[in-house]
Simulated scan of single mutants.
Amino acid sequence: MIDLHLIGIGTGNPDHLTRAAIAAMNAADLILLPRKGDAKSDLIDLRRTICADVLVGATRIVEFDLPERDSTGAYLDAVDRWHDAIADAWTAEIALHLPNGGTLGLLVWGDPSLYDSTLRIADRLRAKGMAMRVHVEPGITSLQVLTAAHAIPLNTLAAPVLITTGRRLRAGGWPSGVDTLAVMLDGGCAFETLAPEGIAIWWGAYLGMPNQALIAGPLDRVGAEIVDSRAILRARHGWIMDIYLLRRG
């Protein structure tokens, strides 16, 4: 039996860890850290730093190479194949390092419930017959860090918020019935497809990290600045994680 603990670690700042997350890390027999290639080496460096800061016992740390997603073909099909490959990688590491069962910890950016597929990948392992109990330690999300960094409320008074992706915003435009959008996983500045008049944006990259970048203002005045800043930061670091809030009216 594997006890799998999915541990939300926020956006990379060790100060964002909860006591429950720290306890789960120290209770684990093994923590797996995924490597995502040289261009994103500082992502695993952040995970290493978090482990060094909070682990006090005999928890083992093992690094493994995360499979890359094929960018060709239909998006959902490519993601499905990618998740299968990740599940296979987990299975191999578990067989090698926890052959008799035990407690496994995986560190998840933000929170495992919000635009993260770790829970779905765990379901694939159970569907293939692995005896597994799954536990989730919630973490601070990038959306929370974004609103805190800009010192703004997520919603307007008594109004809803829609959390969506850049891909959906680009394909479908602004959804009806809502004036506030939180946009995640946007690889191409989908806000450029909108008529910018009357829209405000609060944007943040590398939230909670030392290289955090923030821009806010009317979209028609700061949109181009965000596009330029994002390109510069991505070239400088080799990767970028960003999120933004859009509000009409």
Rank of each mutant, 00 (worst) to 15 (best):
C51D: 12
L46W: 08
D220Y: 06
L119W: 09
D116S: 02
D53Q: 07
D53H: 06
T180M: 00
P218N: 11
R69A: 10
R167F: 08
R48N: 11
S113Q: 11
L55I: 15
I44M: 10
P34M: 12
A131S: 14
A148H: 01
A158E: 13
L181K: 00
A213W: 07
R126F: 13
S229G: 03
T193Y: 10
S142V: 07
M209L: 15
C189Q: 07
M132E: 11
T11C: 15
G110S: 08
D116T: 00
L32D: 07
H150A: 05
C189Y: 02
P175K: 05
T180N: 09
Y206R: 09
A182K: 01
A78R: 05
R167C: 01
G198Y: 05
A127H: 13
L233W: 15
D29G: 08
K40R: 14
G139R: 04
R133A: 11
V161P: 01
S71G: 10
G249D: 13
I86S: 02
H237T: 05
A200I: 10
I61K: 04
L32F: 08
R133Q: 14
L185P: 02
G204I: 11
L104A: 03
N211C: 09
A195R: 07
K128T: 08
P112V: 00
R247K: 08
R81G: 14
G217K: 04
M184T: 04
R230W: 12
A200T: 15
V227S: 03
M25L: 10
A87M: 02
R170G: 03
G102Q: 06
G177M: 12
L181S: 00
L55G: 08
M25P: 05
I2D: 00
I215H: 03
L157R: 12
A127G: 12
T72W: 08
H83M: 09
L162S: 08
G238D: 04
A200L: 10
G129T: 10
P14T: 01
V62W: 14
A85G: 11
V108I: 13
N26R: 04
G204C: 07
R126K: 15
L146A: 08
G208Q: 03
R48F: 14
H135L: 04
A171R: 12
M184N: 06
D116R: 01
P153H: 04
N211P: 01
D38A: 15
G187V: 10
L6S: 00
L207P: 02
I31N: 01
E93L: 07
N13I: 05
D29T: 06
E192T: 11
A20N: 11
R120H: 13
S142E: 03
D88G: 04
A27E: 13
G102F: 06
D77Q: 12
D111E: 11
G208S: 06
V54I: 10
F64C: 03
T59I: 12
R124F: 04
D15E: 15
T72A: 09
L66C: 14
H5R: 14
I201T: 05
R126I: 14
S71Q: 13
T141S: 15
A224K: 13
L219S: 02
